[in-house]
Design a protein around this nucleic acid. Structure first.
Lengths: 256, 256
DNA sequence: GTTGAAGTTTATGTATACAACCTACCACGG
DNA sequence: CCGTGGTAGGTTGTATACATAAACTTCAAC
């Protein structure tokens, strides 16, 4: 079934299990956008009682996968291509804000050291003569760590919380389109640009150049815009887009 | 007790009642920051069963009033003065983003007309020779409407949702410090500046000047910074700050 | 044939009972 | 006297039963 199904087995609480399982059900496309979710049908599908399922539904609504129906219950949300575009742009805005206040207020030396270590790992990756799919998986890790470090550099719980929420939607994640990118011929080129962004932002933060750091992070997020466009319009890559099943109109012109 | 207690009486669902009541309990200071919330104590206080109360607790966690305790249950969050500063700056960033995309993508004529009507109401208010407390209440309405119109001008559900969440904290609201402002000698001056911001942003959006619109909304939010500083440091106005009880260190030097 | 209304069915909202866990206190041993 | 173990109390997590409201179906009348 779903690639993440395993992790739901050995979880602690029933609520968390339900949350993960439901998310998988949604992202795998078994539950389609617009569908109303009946609690009872989930009960018999997951084999637990209604209470943890109701809890999970509330949480998934907060995460943005579901929307409350006025008369009660929840339905699976559908997203337009523009919604995804906006979510990416929003992430760029928030990460730009993080970079700016990190630069303006200054960051702890230890965080800066971690950032530079992360850059070295990235450099080593790009230096490899050929890039395998495993290399891209490794990049996902390094990239996610860089963005996490940026948030800790901003040292603002309020902002961290808000960014966390903005990243709940899978296609808004910093690494959302990396595996798509891996399939594209210009993979290395995009990677090189992303690498440069990371370097420049780190340098800007160190040099207390807030405006520059902000602009760079915004532009960095826009790499995902291009990957999104390519992925949705290139044959065969659409399934690699995280949460592709949530996109309202398949758009992909000429595939069928 | 609380000024909003009335609205909790005639509510529909028990969950919503619990949510509103709990929020009042927190904002009125009856439940103090750091306190762990026992579900049973709320049960006997509100006279309903645990189920809707648990639901309300989850929602209030999402709103930012509570934080989950690792071992289970919730505790009331405490905020530093810098958290509030960041929340205001964050609102400015998000509203700036809204203003920018409204300007860049263009807005429907009807929304623009509503904005201009709102500006006229604002102008009429400022033109009054003296400003009563009622006038400031009216301003809160007009101001809230302006900010709501800005969001609808951006026409982005993803962004609207995110801003809505950012405004859950009472001190992050656009009108959060207006009643404080009313008590200050420079009340009219601040109002005049806010009025100019509203005018300029609307004109910038109409003229498709995205960068200008964004910068203006950011600066507009920073008016709240000043009001925050004044309110916390001026004797007697501290209680007018919404959610003042959530602020960690009373800060207010020399009051006691 | 279509529309409206009433009854039935099924959904969610709420209450409560039960189980598992964490915590704090007390006793016992080193 | 300090540390460790166990037990008791209370807390949250889960399951289930019940009430209420929404939706669907069916039947009848126009």
């Amino acid at each position: 079934m779903s690639p993440h199904a395993a992790e739901t087995e050995r979880s602690s609480s029933q609520t968390v299990k339900a949350q993960l399982s439901l998310r998988d059900l949604i992202l795998s496309g078994e539950l389609k956008p617009g569908d109303r979710i009946s609690e009872l049908s989930i009960v018999e599908r997951l084999g637990m009682s209604r209470t943890p399922i109701r809890m999970a539904l509330v949480r998934l609504e907060e995460e943005g996968f579901l929307e409350a129906i006025p008369s009660g219950g929840f339905a699976i949300k559908a997203f337009s291509e523009r919604d995804i575009y906006d979510a990416i742009e929003l992430r760029g805005t928030l990460e730009g804000f993080a970079a700016r206040i990190a630069a303006e207020r200054g960051v702890q030396g230890s965080v800066l050291a971690e950032l530079k270590d992360n850059l070295r790992q990235f450099d080593a990756l790009v230096a490899r003569p050929t890039l395998t799919v495993d290399d891209f998986s490794e990049y996902v890790e390094i990239n996610a760590h860089f963005h996490a470090l940026l948030i800790s550099a901003a040292d603002s719980p309020v902002l961290a919380r808000q960014i966390e929420r903005a990243l709940n939607l899978p296609f808004a994640s910093p690494s959302g389109f990396v595996m798509v990118q891996a399939m594209l011929p210009e993979a290395r080129r995009i990677l090189t640009i992303a690498q440069d962004h990371h370097h420049c932002v780190t340098r800007a933060i160190e040099a207390r150049e807030g405006t520059r750091a902000e602009a760079l992070m915004r532009e960095h997020a826009r790499l995902a815009h291009r990957n999104l466009q390519l992925a949705l319009r290139t044959q065969g890559t659409r399934d690699l887009v995280p949460g592709a099943v949530l996109i309202r109109r398949p758009v992909a012109a000429g595939i069928y």
